[in-house]
Simulated scan of single mutants.
Amino acid sequence: MNIRPDAARMKRELGELVAINSENPPGGEGAVAQWARERLASLGFEVKLIEYAPARFNVEARLVNGPGPVFAFNTHMDTVPAGNGWTSDAFTLTERDGRLYGRGSCDCKGPLAAMIEAARMLVAERQAWSGTLMVVFTGDEEVASAGARHYAASRPEIDAVVVGEPTGNACFSAHKGSFRPVVRITGKAAHSGSPHLGDNAIFRAGQLMPLLAAFHDDVLAQRSHPLVGNPSLTVTRIKGGHADNVIPAECELLLDRRLIPGETDASAEAEIRALLAEAERTHGIRAEIVGYHATTGGATDTPETAPVVQAAVAACRAAGVAEAGPFGFQGACDLVHFIEAGAEGVVIGAGDIRVAHRPDEFVPADEFVASAAIYADIARRILAA
């Protein structure tokens, strides 16, 4: 009979993790990495801390248990900043009404604690599975996935991966990506008392924005992926002007282009460049891409027929998840980088992504405990002896 998760221990360890401030920025994952190394090493894993940037770490733990596939648990160690508006201390795990409150409780220290518990369960029943079990915790997911990108670049040999993110314990086998170019619109400076002598770059940006919106409505909204839906294009930041009495010669827009599987940064950029060229031909708007903001990465999907998807859906159903999936994740996450490295994978975790970055972030306690059992069940199905 399979060993069950220890709910009290899981809550205690989640409390320890929440108490470690790993807000990103600036990204202080080092203490979380040390915490994870101690626990995984005590279970018999060979553990390495990988410094991918000064004082920034990934954790790689490996346990070889006979011949078979290589299966990995992955989630990230950083959180978004706590911010204001909390009704309890963001760095003290607080349980009330069946919920566990604290920054990172569902994104993603809850999955991290649950994966540690799942690893314990699997170590305790090594006779029931064969292969290599890995636990990989990465840094910087909340900004640019620098940790996962660095790890994937080493081409780790992983056959299947479960990435922990809040999904209500359902199986998500696809996710969107994001691409954020900076577009500079160029005008001509002049004294604001004689605006006709200049070319107002902010006005020109105002002309460009309806063209961007039309491209979203007329082109992107007509595309669709069965699990993640439509791609999108919008403006999330604008910057222009340098003095109160000067017609601005430049204005910059930050575009947020959400990608669906099959689209890439390169393909999205080519479309935006074509749109800007058409804006200049038809409206005289001079605009160009001058830079990029960091993102978590591209879009990806794993076929429903893949063994890890089949195992994950079966494990979710066995745990009583009413709608087990597979579904599509609207946000981006580190799964894409593991797939680019050659693995197949899914995203599963307790909690609701809609509360993840807000004050009073929480994870339902029952879901949290159940997620450890789901993780262990998926591993058993992939690593069946």
Score class of each variant (00 low, 15 high):
185 I>A: 04
373 A>M: 00
359 P>G: 03
313 V>S: 09
34 Q>E: 09
222 Q>C: 11
123 V>S: 00
359 P>Y: 13
344 E>G: 05
189 A>K: 13
39 R>F: 00
156 P>T: 04
293 H>Q: 15
342 G>F: 13
236 T>R: 08
327 F>Q: 10
221 A>H: 03
289 I>F: 11
47 V>K: 09
334 D>G: 10
385 A>C: 14
294 A>S: 12
368 F>Q: 06
350 A>Q: 05
167 T>P: 03
293 H>I: 00
114 A>E: 06
216 H>A: 11
198 G>W: 12
208 L>T: 04
249 A>S: 12
185 I>D: 11
271 E>L: 09
378 I>C: 05
295 T>Y: 10
185 I>N: 06
90 A>Q: 06
64 V>I: 08
383 L>G: 01
245 N>T: 10
126 R>Q: 08
36 A>F: 03
270 A>E: 14
135 V>C: 13
285 I>H: 13
291 G>F: 08
247 I>V: 15
199 D>P: 02
197 L>N: 12
99 R>E: 05
336 V>R: 14
184 R>N: 08
306 A>E: 13
34 Q>R: 15
241 G>E: 11
31 A>E: 15
109 K>T: 04
315 A>R: 02
355 V>W: 15
109 K>A: 07
226 P>F: 11
379 A>H: 05
198 G>I: 05
118 A>L: 00
164 G>R: 13
1 M>K: 06
